[in-house]
Design a protein around this nucleic acid. Structure first.
Length: 414
RNA sequence: GGAGAGGUGACCGAGUGGUUUAAGGUAACGGUCUUGAAAACCGUCGUGGUGUAAAAGCUACCGAGGGUUCGAAUCCCUCCCUCUCCGCCA
């Protein structure tokens, strides 16, 4: 969530960002609730002051009946005001939760089609066999049996394709470790506070992408970003310890309801895939620089795997609530003759960190909410699609990208 | 899952109804002393809300949420978590 003081001081800016992101929240309504709430808070504080003073008079000796009677009267009034305050607080907080993060000035305004390409790398080839046909011919993937044991869009990876997944994972992990990240495995379920704090949809949200555990306060994670965001919840970090660079590995569970259509064939969009995710806690003034660094790591990684791609600066309407700015890397698909999403990295500024109360103690002793960023290192299922599409040989084999060979027993083809 | 013991500020730790505005210590920061450092001594030092030019002031917070009371860190209820033992188990 945003800082209410920031909203009070910048109501137009926040209202504009809310609109640009496609959210329908009235900032003037919010500020009105804020006023009401503060007014009631003051009334309650005054009554409490009276109560405390009254109780103070009774210390020691036996209390006089008159004081006790006055105390009882205050208690009744206070209870009434406190009820009003609780209602006002709830209304206020519910609305504040709905206000999305602001957007940076260099974010293009508009919908998906307004995202701006900022870089293009590699040769755009055309003509390749679709990854699903290619993999099925080799008995590398089994969606039919996935459907039998779980449902549509679940799958088994078999043999060399499963081994290739492991090789990509190992390679990417080594790559990111060299950049100074600390490897973590994470809980695959998070409680509601953590899920909402990281910006994921609540139980009951019809558009939500999450699986929930029945009878428990648990959500299956759609990315390691969720548990990693919560890792430092309610902590005060030392300025000297920042930035904290983590890389989490986990499955990602996603309902993907109603997404049938383009780009859903095979492994491109599935209910469960493994992902290696970078996550950073840093000083507020460093987050923009850090965002560029994360993008640079992603680019370097995919360049080292020889994949053609472009980078896009995501338009406001596609950012989601927590991000102030987001870059996607889209790889070139010779099957589609088009770019398709491969990785994504976001600067969430202090939005997630404020939800989960993650602060930094500055050298001068003051406290400030930290900034958080996240970026995909590799999303494994999509990585397999990418490599199958870009590494087919003339004689119908799959060439192993050179960088991955040490992780596949030095095999050159599969 | 069962039984027991716990949860207090960045950390340790005292505190079983009203002198607690949460003792004391550690760490941190500032100062004295010193060529410099350490030690010693002096001082500052929780978080949120409200308020203010800035302060002061007021208020809340002792795992979370309810309750009892004129008054709750302290008593009662529910839940969460940690530790010890038992059970189950990769």
């Amino acid at each position: 969530m945003l800082d209410i003081r920031f909203i009070r001081e910048n109501p137009e800016k926040v209202q504009q960002a809310t609109k640009d992101k496609g959210y329908d929240v009235s900032i003037s309504d919010l500020l009105k609730l804020d006023d009401e709430r503060r007014n009631l808070q003051q009334q309650v504080d005054e009554l409490r002051e009276k109560r405390n003073a009254n109780a103070g008079k009774m210390k020691g000796g036996k209390p006089e009946q008159a004081l006790i009677d006055e105390g009882k009267q205050i208690k009744i009034e206070l209870a009434e005001r406190e009820t009003y305050l609780a209602t006002a607080d709830k209304e206020f907080n519910d609305l504040l939760q709905k206000v999305p993060n602001i957007i940076f000035d260099d974010v293009p305004v508009g919908g998906e089609e307004d995202s701006v390409e900022i870089k293009k790398v590699g040769e755009q080839k055309t003509g390749a066999t679709d990854h699903l046909d290619f993999a099925r011919e080799r008995d590398w993937v089994d969606f039919e049996r996935g459907a039998k044991v779980a449902g549509a869009k679940f799958y088994f990876l078999k043999g060399d394709l499963a081994l290739l997944e492991n090789a990509i994972y190992q390679y990417a992990l080594d790559f990111v470790l060299k950049k100074g990240f600390t490897y973590m495995t994470v809980p695959h379920m998070v409680n509601t506070r953590t899920a909402l704090g990281a910006g994921f949809a609540p139980r009951g949200d019809k558009e939500g992408n999450e699986y929930f555990i029945e009878g428990e306060d648990l959500t299956m994670i759609g990315t390691a970003e969720a548990p990693l965001t919560g890792y430092h919840a309610d902590e005060i970090l030392d300025e000297d310890d920042l930035p904290k660079l983590y890389v989490g590995y986990s499955p990602s569970y996603r309902k993907e309801a109603g997404t049938y259509g383009k780009h859903t064939r095979g492994l491109f969009r599935v209910h469960q895939f493994n992902k290696l995710e970078m996550y950073v806690f840093c000083l507020p003034e460093k987050s923009q620089e850090m965002h560029e660094k994360i993008l640079a790591i992603e680019e370097e990684l995919w360049q080292s795997l020889g994949i053609p791609y472009h980078v896009i600066n995501i338009a406001s309407g596609d950012l989601g609530a927590p991000a102030a700015k987001k870059y996607d890397i889209e790889y070139w698909s010779p099957v589609d003759s088009n770019y398709r999403e491969l990785t994504s990295c976001s600067n969430c500024t202090d939005f997630q960190a404020r939800n989960l109360n993650i602060r930094v103690r500055r050298k001068d002793g003051s406290l400030e909410t930290v900034h958080t960023l996240n970026g995909t290192a590799v999303s494994l299922a999509r990585s397999l699609v990418t490599i199958i599409e870009n590494y087919q040989t003339e004689d119908g084999k799959l060439m192993v990208p050179e960088a991955l060979r040490p992780y596949l027993g030095d095999r050159e083809t599969l």
